[in-house]
Amino acid sequence: MGHGGGGRMMQQLLERLVRPAFANPHLDQRHDSAVLDVGGKRLAFTTDGYVVKPLFFPGGDIGKLAVCGTLNDLAMSGAKPLFLSAALVIEEGFPVDDLARVLASMNAAAQAAGTAIVTGDTKVVENGKGDGLYIATSGIGLIEHDLQIGPAGIREGDAILLSGDIGRHGVAIIAEREGLGFETTVESDCADLSGLVGELLKAGVELHCLRDLTRGGLAAAVLELATDSGFDMELNEDAIPVTPAVRGACEILGFDPLYVANEGRMVLFMSASVVDLALDVLHAHPLGRDAAVIGQVGAAGEGRVGLRNAYGIVRVLDLPSGEQLPRIC
């Protein structure tokens, strides 16, 4: 299971087994979706599988998660989402009411983004074999600008922005699943970022790279981009928004909010000169209200990511190999 935590074991599995098996130039873009030239148009194409326990949680459910996740992957290429597909794997005996709720929230999420689920598939597996419900979604989007948004666009000196507070999804899930009963209920941040990205593009913000935060949290996303781009990066701990409820829960659970999962947040890379414009757009949008500049891209190096605290001490961030194991002796 160490392979599932979004840590280094997962990355190694991808690098050693999955990527070589399918080797092709599109896969080498190392981004959330593949950008394809089709008949003179640039299309973004992505697919994702969703497995979550519990299926319903404060702030969302597996259906909303599956749709928003795919919309976000398209948005990270700066694409306007067009069409979605969905495949459902349902465990025998799964309550029909629950299924109806999930389908409704999928549809609502798709419509809110101006898209629709235009094709799909449904399978039923034996009782005890499916954790209730698995969902796989795919999406196609259209890229209507000339920017090359992706890890290759990152430049030395770029500002790193974060669209909002972090850690809510991971805390919401574990609190609900384990019945932890925190004093303040934390809601998942599960949301579709494609509208917000559209606003930024419309305003003319030259985005260099976008990455939505998922498993492994902010740390995993930035570390991945640092490794892929080969630039050292530095984040300011104080600038990273975390709500008191999430901070308190993380303190009790022994989690570092930087590593906790999100489903509706992204990091944005851009030249320092366009930061003010970007912040104006972000702050005007409900999903970007708490957006902040959280760091900057340093020189080309080994792809080291440092976290500077209030005292100026820079801690080096690292991806744990799987489940986080205490290192203190």
Partner: peptide, 19 residues
């Protein structure tokens, strides 16, 4: 509040590795 969550972690074994 902290106490009840910590006890819950101990009961379920969640985020409570044995050592």
């Amino acid at each position: 509040g902290t106490l009840s969550v910590l006890l819950r972690l101990l009961q379920t074994g969640t985020q409570s590795p044995e050592c």
